[in-house]
Amino acid sequence: MKKKKTGANAVLEYTPSNALEAATQAAYKAFAHYQAPDHLLDVCTACCMNAELEREMRHLPLRQLTQRHFYEYNDSAKSQVQPADEIKYLAPRLLELLAEGARLHHSTELHLDRLGRCEPGSFSAAEQSALQGFALAYFAQGLEQWPAASDSLFQGDNAFSILLMWARARVPLEPLLQHWLDCDTDASTLNFVDACYWDYVWYSKQMGNAFATDEVEYKRTMEEWLNRPATKARWTEKLMRLVDAGPSSSWLPAGALDHHCYPLPERISAVFDAMAA
């Protein structure tokens, strides 16, 4: 949150981080009436999760739960269908830790997997709205960070992995995709380049992430969006503007190599050619 003016007339300016904090608090409000379970959580304490950590998740104040609690909770053996009241009690802190950059599973795509395993219809309209608002604020802030280093909001993963994470939580992707299309920042465009380069197979028009194998709705949504003429035209325009302007201090130097040793200009060119085709 930033101030636009000083002195008595100071006003708060909207920033992505401000929006994410507001979305976090909205999630706490939406799920505030749920209580900690009075029985064993949906985990395996025989071999998957430390029994003391499981007990703490039910007895400590919600905001005192840590990354370690949720990592073991998420990584434990679990029921195919999740207990909705348990998930909704824990959801605000889970989201808050996500906003703080916590690693909540060995794979980003599975950070919110338990949310998506609840029975259809488990979340009220207000709860769904809170999840949607948080997803948009989280995605919008992450798109403005480039490069997506391990300490960034996306934790080094590309934006398609983040969208898959939300899809597995059964949060609609259309508002996130529309926001991305509307963005004009270099960072958001470069995040698009990397996501397309690594996670979309252009010749077969298919999403490439292994965690998307059984996510039929995610693949349909993404593949339809990427191949929509208006989408391709908009990204072609933004990529042309990016190349015409040339490298700025906000992106990797021209010719620099990322951790996969592929030059950034090569990735931009490949995605531009695919979009313009």
Score class of each variant (00 low, 15 high):
K2H: 12
K4C: 06
K4A: 14
G7A: 15
A10I: 10
V11H: 08
E13Y: 15
E13L: 10
A19R: 03
A19Y: 04
A23F: 06
Y28K: 03
A30I: 05
A32K: 11
L40Q: 13
D42N: 13
C44A: 14
C44P: 01
C47F: 14
C48I: 11
N50L: 15
N50D: 15
A51D: 13
A51S: 08
L53R: 02
M57G: 05
R58E: 15
H59F: 06
P61K: 04
L65N: 02
T66N: 07
Q67N: 13
R68N: 01
D75Q: 13
S76M: 05
S79M: 09
Q80S: 10
Q80G: 10
V81R: 09
A84G: 14
Y89D: 01
A91W: 11
A91F: 03
P92Y: 01
P92S: 10
L95C: 03
E96R: 03
A99W: 01
A102Y: 14
A102E: 14
H105I: 04
H106T: 04
D113Q: 05
L115P: 01
R117T: 14
C118W: 11
G121H: 03
S122I: 10
F123I: 00
S124F: 04
A126W: 03
E127N: 05
Q128Y: 12
A130Y: 07
L131K: 04
L136A: 14
A137F: 12
A137D: 06
A137V: 00
L143G: 05
E144V: 00
A148Y: 00
S150Y: 09
D151L: 08
Q155M: 15
D157R: 13
F160W: 13
S161D: 09
W166H: 10
A167K: 06
A167Q: 10
R168K: 08
V171Q: 07
P172S: 05
L176R: 00
L177W: 10
Q178W: 05
A187M: 08
L190C: 15
V193S: 02
C196A: 05
W198H: 15
W198S: 11
V201Q: 07
W202S: 13
Y203K: 15
Y203S: 08
K205T: 01
K205F: 02
Q206F: 08
F211A: 14
T213N: 15
E215W: 14
E215Y: 00
E217R: 06
K219M: 09
T221F: 12
T221M: 11
M222W: 08
L226V: 04
N227C: 06
K232G: 03
A233C: 05
T236Q: 09
E237M: 08
K238G: 02
L239E: 02
L239W: 01
R241Y: 06
V243C: 07
S249L: 13
S249E: 09
S249A: 11
L252D: 04
L252P: 01
P253Y: 15
P253C: 09
A254S: 12
A254M: 10
A254V: 02
L257R: 14
P263N: 00
L264A: 12
I268M: 00
I268C: 04
I268Y: 07
A270F: 10
M275D: 15
